[in-house]
Amino acid sequence: MQVTLAEELVLLSLDDRTGAPKEGVGTAWAAAGGLLAELVLAGRVEVADGRLGVVDRTPTGDPLLDGRLERLDEWIAGKRPGRAKAGDWLTKDRATVVRDTELRLCERGLVTEERHRVLGIFPVRHYPEADGSVERALRERLTAVVLDGDEPELRTAALIALLHSAKLHRLAFPDLPRKQVQPRFAEIAAGDWAGESVGEAIRNMQATMAAVIAATTAATTVAATVS
């Protein structure tokens, strides 16, 4: 079963038994970057100098990607020429990308949706594993590349670059210290494994995420100082 980079990231982020999310903020950024990278790989979108352009509106056949392509096309159309910045799109898309991806995983039968209420009031959705075959194959691929030193094919390299950029190493290798796997992640992320447009999509995700986190941290520090 061929799944998107975003679906792979979300699968790694969900607890298999409880379906509870792990590393939610980083996963959202990485998944948004993953969908954008997928559209670039599919030849539908280009990223150049931090700006986005739709170059082919033909559906890919994947509902998750095609929905994003339509949204992105509409969003770009509402911008003035040259103002469709990749960072702005990623910031917008991260708000809904995980939820949309979880629903797609449900449609594929890889997870099931369970609804709960916290304190009997607040609704919460969890997504425990229903079919673990895709995630097992994914983890075997990551182990072969990161721990055994195999050369990654394009999609695995892109996934590793996204995980590294969002500092999600523990999602892939929860039982290993980060310092043991980070050098190999960094090596692959820095490699010449994809066209410039795909690499730029991932670098934009990383830069935008870093900027938002820095701004949030600064605002929190100011608020704490004032109080």
Rank of each mutant, 00 (worst) to 15 (best):
G87M: 04
E74W: 07
A130M: 12
L138D: 09
D175V: 03
G24K: 15
G109I: 01
G120K: 02
P123M: 00
Q180L: 14
G78A: 11
R170H: 13
T58V: 12
V226W: 07
E200C: 09
A48T: 14
R71D: 15
G24I: 12
T216R: 15
V98R: 11
R155C: 00
T220D: 14
I188C: 02
G132N: 03
V47C: 02
W75H: 08
G195S: 11
D73S: 15
A95K: 15
T101G: 03
S165I: 01
A86Y: 02
P152E: 07
T143F: 11
V98T: 13
R117L: 12
V146H: 03
T91W: 14
N204T: 11
E135A: 13
V146M: 02
M205A: 08
R141P: 08
I188Y: 07
P177V: 03
G67F: 06
V181A: 03
E23F: 11
A144I: 02
P123Q: 06
T225M: 15
E151W: 06
V10K: 02
M209T: 05
G191R: 09
A218M: 04
D148H: 13
R51M: 09
A219P: 01
D93F: 10
V98E: 11
A190E: 11
A95S: 14
A42T: 05
R125D: 10
I121D: 10
I76Y: 01
E200F: 01
M205I: 00
A194C: 12
V98H: 00
A48K: 14
L138T: 01
L163D: 02
A86L: 06
G61R: 00
A130L: 12
V111Q: 05
M209W: 05
H164L: 10
E129G: 03
M205V: 05
L119P: 00
P152H: 08
R141T: 10
L176W: 01
L90E: 04
E38G: 02
V10G: 00
G26W: 04
Y127P: 02
